[in-house]
Computed example of a mutant assay.
Amino acid sequence: MKKTDEKHSFYEVFEVFSKRNFKSEFQHQFSLLAPNHEVAIVMAQENFMRREPVVDIWVVKRSDVRKLDPEEKASLQRLDNKEYRLTKGYGYLKKKWRQYEQQVLDEKEILSWGGEQGAPNPNSTGSNPK
């Protein structure tokens, strides 16, 4: 066995993911070689967290990360059409609301139906009763 093979059998590859703030998603940052999880976390903190502000990190062995086989990917296809369950967004609502607001009568328009301003009120006699 070569010396380089010994070195690689001792170290494992770890993938480091970080989260910049509480609302953001985890993002892959880099890979590193470490002998175990504890050392990998310390190395990730030293190499990454001191440079950029983060609220959380994940350190995962690359061998523990699994992807789907082609057969498994095929099972993800939808068997029936249920697009009605997908949210397409509500972008059209702003336009509909604007149209609605244009149709709503405002106070000045309603008051203008009462006749001309300054016209005498037919219910008043124009003189003070004594």
Rank of each mutant, 00 (worst) to 15 (best):
A34D: 04
N128H: 01
N123S: 10
F14K: 04
N47P: 01
Q77G: 03
L32Y: 09
N21Y: 09
D80T: 15
I110Y: 08
E116M: 15
K88Q: 13
A119N: 15
E25Y: 04
Q45I: 06
L33M: 10
V54F: 14
R51Y: 14
D56A: 15
E116T: 12
V59F: 10
D80P: 03
D64T: 05
E109K: 05
V104Y: 01
V59Q: 04
A44K: 04
S75T: 10
T87F: 10
K88D: 04
A40N: 00
P53E: 13
S9W: 05
A34W: 07
T87C: 09
L93Y: 09
V55D: 07
G91Y: 11
Q102A: 09
D5V: 12
Y100P: 02
K88H: 12
M49R: 14
K96S: 07
K67H: 06
K19T: 08
R78P: 10
R98A: 11
Y100Q: 08
Y92D: 02
F14A: 03
M1Q: 14
L111Q: 07
E15W: 04
F17I: 00
P70G: 01
N21M: 04
A44Y: 03
D56H: 13
Q99K: 12
Q29N: 11
E15F: 06
S63N: 12
F30D: 00
N123V: 02
L105E: 13
Q45C: 07
E116N: 12
L32P: 01
S31A: 06
H28Y: 14
F14S: 05
Y84L: 02
R20S: 02
K94H: 09
K61M: 03
D106A: 02
E101N: 06
E38H: 12
K19A: 09
H8E: 06
W58Y: 11
K96Y: 05
G91E: 12
K19H: 06
V13P: 01
L32V: 11
L105A: 12
N121L: 07
V65K: 11
D5W: 03
L93E: 14
A34Y: 10
T87D: 13
K130H: 10
D106K: 09
V104C: 10
S18F: 15
P120R: 11
S124V: 09
V65L: 15
K73P: 02
Y90N: 15
L76H: 05
